[in-house]
């Protein structure tokens, strides 16, 4: 059928409907670079057996940043309080293991659902005054409320001492969470990849297209008949759900929860990572998390006192040279080399 259209010059410009679906299909298709990325990720499991702990942390942070990318990159909603969902997920997973069952998948599902519900409940606050600054305030406020709530409910959460006694059963009843973090890393990778697939499917669907329309021009999207409020709310809850799952992964792999899962620095860090990796193409959070954590690990091994200084310096340089993010860095460099080659 494709050959037909290309053969006949009269039919070269198909109707808009078809053009849209073809465009979506093209966007939904896997690019070679994506295969390479996930192959490298899978290879890291086999070739870096003694770094599984750090890699798990990266996978969790990457998933968390992915959830933030959904609302910032695809709905244009900025948030400084995404840590609330992450922390809620972490606590729900911890409490599930203590009071209900140590089975990890149950904890993961419950944690994700709880965070999703909180997203659904607090999402309408974002729609009341739809300006970026008020959204920052609202999300920050919600995060602070959740943090203080967890601090006050010391009988449930252990308060400032943290929640101890989290014991996670072997994964699928077979794979024990070992001291080397191998099971933990495999678990984090698979969950992260699964959520990535779902998120990718969502943003390349017509639904995702309507979200992009909202991000680019909410007024126009509304006049086209897109239910802006409902779309934003839906995506916000979905994003919260993923953040909750990331929190659950953290609890289950470390078997401990303390108040700092809800602390402001989590929300700020993940925003930084996302900006570093680039917004609006799903890989930004993952790449940002890899870059950020590896740099941090490297610098803090060299100089435990002053690594923050070097970290800040590198971030500045990356942003200045790469214009906006890590993803753009190789492209910019390549362009520069080509230019120099020509002159």
């Amino acid at each position: 059928m494709m050959t037909d259209t290309s053969l006949s010059p009269l039919l070269a410009s198909p109707r808009p409907n078809e053009r849209v679906s073809r465009d979506l299909l093209r966007r939904g298709r896997w690019k070679p670079a994506e295969f390479v990325f996930w192959l490298i990720v899978a290879a890291s499991f086999f070739f870096l057996p003694d770094r599984h702990l750090l890699l798990s942390e990266i996978a969790i942070l990457g998933l968390f940043a992915l959830s933030l990318d959904l609302i910032i990159g695809y709905a244009g909603v900025v948030s400084l309080g995404h840590g609330a969902f992450f922390g809620l997920g972490a606590y729900v997973a911890g409490l599930t293991s203590i009071h209900l069952t140590g089975e990890p998948l149950t904890g993961l599902v419950l944690a994700a659902l709880a965070a999703g519900l909180l997203g659904l409940a607090t999402g309408p606050l974002l729609l009341l005054r739809a300006s970026d600054l008020t959204r920052l305030m609202v999300t920050l406020g919600v995060a602070m409320l959740v943090l203080e709530g967890a601090n006050q409910a010391a009988w449930l959460t252990g308060g400032a001492d943290g929640l101890t006694g989290v014991m996670i059963d072997p994964l699928l009843g077979r794979f024990e969470f070992d001291l080397f973090g191998t099971t933990g890393y495999a678990y984090c990778l698979i969950v992260t990849f699964a959520f990535f697939l779902i998120a990718r499917r969502v943003v390349t669907s017509p639904y995702g297209l309507s979200l992009r329309a909202i991000r680019d021009n909410p007024l126009r999207a509304r006049s086209m008949g897109i239910p802006v409020g409902r779309r934003i709310l839906g995506l916000y809850a979905f994003s919260a759900l993923i953040a909750g799952a990331a929190g659950a992964l953290l609890t289950q792999t470390t078997m401990f929860v303390s108040l700092d899962v809800l602390a402001f620095h989590r929300s700020a860090d993940v925003l930084l990572i996302l900006v570093l990796g680039g917004v609006g193409y799903l890989y930004g959070g993952l790449l940002g998390a890899i870059g950020f954590k590896l740099l941090q690990d490297w610098f803090s091994a060299i100089t435990p006192q002053y690594w923050m200084f070097w970290m800040g310096l590198v971030l500045l340089v990356v942003v200045l040279i790469g214009r906006e993010n890590l993803n753009a860095l190789p492209r910019t460099l390549l362009a520069r080399f080509r230019k120099e080659g020509r002159t």
Binding site: D50, L53, L54, L179, G181, T254, F256, S258, D260, H265
Partner: peptide, 15 residues
Amino acid sequence: GVADTTKRLAQELIV
């Protein structure tokens, strides 16, 4: 001063 970092570092130091 972040607990999960402490735990990860301790685990890496042991392993």
